[in-house]
Amino acid sequence: MTSTGHEAQLRIPEGVLLGHALVGRLADSLGIRVFFIKGPASVIQGLRKAKISADVDVFVDPTRIEDLLQGLYERGWRQRPVDPDDRTFPKHSVTVHHSAWPCCIDVHFRFPGMEGAAHECFTALWANTVHVELAGQRLRVPSKALGILFLALHALRSRDLPACREELEYLAVLTWRESLAEALLELASATGALAAVRPFLEGLLPEATTAVWPEPSREWHNRVAAQAPGSARLIAIAQASWRDKSRMLWAAIFPPREVLLSANIYADMSLPGRLDQHGARWWRFLRAAPRMVRNLRGLR
């Protein structure tokens, strides 16, 4: 207890480390294979410059995700509201939060850009994990090559942002210095990530190495193009059948409450509060309109 009589609150860096320990011990107790991606482990491995992580990213065996989530629910964690439109926003993780914790836990069952079948993809990923000491626990994390693949795919989704360009440059130097390009190629092939990672990896491969690069999927094209607020919805509506367009347009104009709560779980859901949030959404949309037009032209 603090001197004021209130319970001491976890700070974000502490919460993230303890969150890793919590999920790791829970998974061990249930016999579930998990490993942690991005976050503090990537800093320990030298894959990222020092930075504070805001949440816990864990990749779980897709066949056991419900078991892990149930274990978290029993410990007071609750699923964060999400947009129910999984056509516009294909799901790759489940995010849970806890009223006493300052961070969320993102439970991944797939990763954007890795488009291999779920079971085969996880098998390839699990075979390329190593142990590190983190938060007083011995936890599994990606090998250096796999860690680079995860971080590169994450940055490639928004590679026009200065921070993402800087991260890709840092990863490129690391890949070249440690001669990891061919290992990256093998991992990308095994996980169905060749098309997505090509802009990063192609120029790093030795001249003698040849690769067959598949075309990026529509999902990946859309993720990369949808950089401005609202552009993902416009892209999905443009690509939808005429039968679905009107329904999707209605949902975009009058979104369900989950959409508002997905941005802020403590959002004011009274009528005045919802009106304020709708006004803010439209303001963001109008400000981003020129950029969205460029996105749609690029997709054509």
Rank of each mutant, 00 (worst) to 15 (best):
H221V: 14
S158P: 00
P90I: 00
S29T: 09
F111T: 07
R297Y: 14
M292G: 13
D106F: 06
R33C: 11
D57F: 13
I253S: 03
G24F: 10
S189W: 05
E178H: 11
A252P: 08
G203W: 06
E74N: 02
E258F: 12
L47Q: 08
D268W: 01
D276T: 15
H20E: 02
A195P: 06
L296F: 04
I12R: 10
S143K: 00
W101P: 06
R140E: 04
S262G: 12
F109N: 04
L299V: 02
A190N: 02
T191Q: 02
P40K: 04
E258I: 14
L139S: 04
V259S: 04
E219Q: 14
F36A: 10
H154I: 00
R78V: 13
S179W: 06
V107P: 05
V259R: 14
S29F: 07
P40A: 02
A195H: 08
P84Q: 02
I32L: 14
P290E: 08
E258Y: 09
A211S: 11
F89Q: 09
V43C: 05
P84E: 05
A135S: 01
L234D: 11
P255A: 06
A155H: 03
Q9W: 10
L234R: 11
M269G: 09
A100C: 09
I265Q: 08
R287W: 15
W101V: 07
S3Q: 12
A240W: 06
A195R: 03
L153V: 04
W282K: 10
R177M: 11
P216T: 09
A289H: 08
L26T: 12
A251D: 14
A50P: 11
G15H: 01
I253A: 13
D160I: 06
H154E: 00
S53R: 02
P84W: 04
A263E: 15
V23I: 13
G46M: 00
P255G: 05
A228T: 07
L201Q: 07
L299C: 11
L234Q: 11
S231D: 11
E115H: 02
L18I: 01
A8G: 12
L286K: 03
F122C: 00
L168W: 11
E14A: 08
V212N: 11
T129G: 04
